[in-house]
Design a protein around this nucleic acid. Structure first.
Lengths: 217, 217
DNA sequence: ATATTTTTTTAGATGTACCTAAACATTACT
DNA sequence: AGTAATGTTTAGGTACATCTAAAAAAATAT
């Protein structure tokens, strides 16, 4: 049985390695988990001993198969709870993260199975992120960063890259939600900002914002 | 901010002191929390320092007002989650305890406020125990142990004293649920067991069972 | 009222998850 | 290639929540 701290490490490694492909450095984990590099070294030694990661000194860590599976289960729980909070408890999409960070550590396979059923087996969370199934399988639709779209390109917002509350509130303000249609009117060479048609409105968004909006046709 | 362990101590003290009236001994806490007396002494010193309990060496502990309020909030969360599990996630009343033990420690006043609303502001949990309101206020209906009822007395099951899974499964088996009408047909002097009419059936229940069933008219 | 038993507390250890400071490896820069 | 900068690990220490064994206090029994 893994502790909350251990589970958080596995989740962080999963995210930082983009799904378990690349190795993750000690410092990037320390940053991500808001802790110190020395603490990370301590913990990854323990996780390596438990066989959930592969660790070679000075070379960073990789999730093992079992570690990846644990990480995906935590992500599954996190996202299912987010759906519950938004769909049933009137939470806004910028309010769910903190609470889901706690709920994701509740240990009860039955609970998650039943919650999934209760929610109608959702495939995506309120930020458009895919929810892994019981076996940890992800169904990822092709999606592009809005920042990479060409002038004239059209699409629909399917997800956001950042679940930061301030960012999501800004999106609410400009009327950008999952499902909102977008069209690139113009790209500003100077700072990479975009002029876009969002629903019925035409506005400018910074490069940073457009990097964090994911669209598909 | 209190840790899970600290919260569990406060909850245990609340239950063992019957709502904060009598002092609770070190050993009874150790028994209840399945830990050792020495560990309890350590912890109650810390809780006393945090002003959530009153502690005098060798005299047992009492909840302070703030400690009582914390305990009631945890009990509120526990019972609301139990309602959710039974009403919405198809859990049976003997399956909810363990999961609710985890869920009660989630820290988010908004979550509990919204959950309460979602559930329709329930007053009792699946075992018939009253749910404290936001201010920790309990509405307790008068209720008697079935074991204390007199021959010929009639009533309705309103709660159970023990949430032990085996006991609840037994109640399911004999058809005893919250709301089931009961009538005392006869009391057996010898072992204190009862002959009762439960719904439409007439059966015998042991003294131990009847002690754990609460009825009201 | 004294001795015995029970209960509670203290003393000293352990494992977890952190920390700082210092040592060591790797990478980047003239 | 040699040095400086950056990244990582080790060493040693802290707070938390637990433990065992022993000492001390309170309750019980003779």
């Amino acid at each position: 049985m893994l502790s909350f701290a251990e589970e958080n490490y596995l989740k962080a490694i999963y995210h930082l390695s983009e799904g378990g492909s690349e190795p993750v450095s000690t410092n990037s984990l320390a940053d991500n988990l808001e802790t110190k590099a020395a603490s990370v070294t301590d913990m990854i030694k323990k996780l390596a001993q438990k066989q959930v990661i592969d660790y070679k000194k000075y070379y960073g860590v990789n999730l093992s198969d079992s570690g990846k599976s644990v990480a995906l289960q935590i992500i599954r729980k996190h996202r299912l709870w987010e759906v519950f909070l938004v769909n049933n408890l009137e939470f806004k999409w910028d309010e769910v993260h903190e609470v889901a960070e706690q709920l994701e550590h509740i240990k009860s396979p039955l609970l998650i199975q039943r919650l999934d059923k209760f929610l109608g087996f959702p495939k995506y969370d309120p930020h458009g992120d895919p929810i892994p199934d019981e076996n940890g399988k992800l169904t990822t639709k092709p999606r592009t960063e809005l920042a990479l779209a060409k002038k004239g390109q059209q699409g629909v917002i399917v997800a956001v890259n950042d679940s930061n509350s301030a960012f999501l509130k800004y999106l609410d303000k400009i009327g950008a939600r999952i499902g909102t249609p977008v069209e690139v009117i113009d790209k500003v060479e100077f700072d990479g900002s975009l002029e876009i048609k969002l629903g019925e409105k035409v506005i400018f968004v910074s490069k940073e914002v457009s990097t964090n909006i994911l669209i598909s046709e």
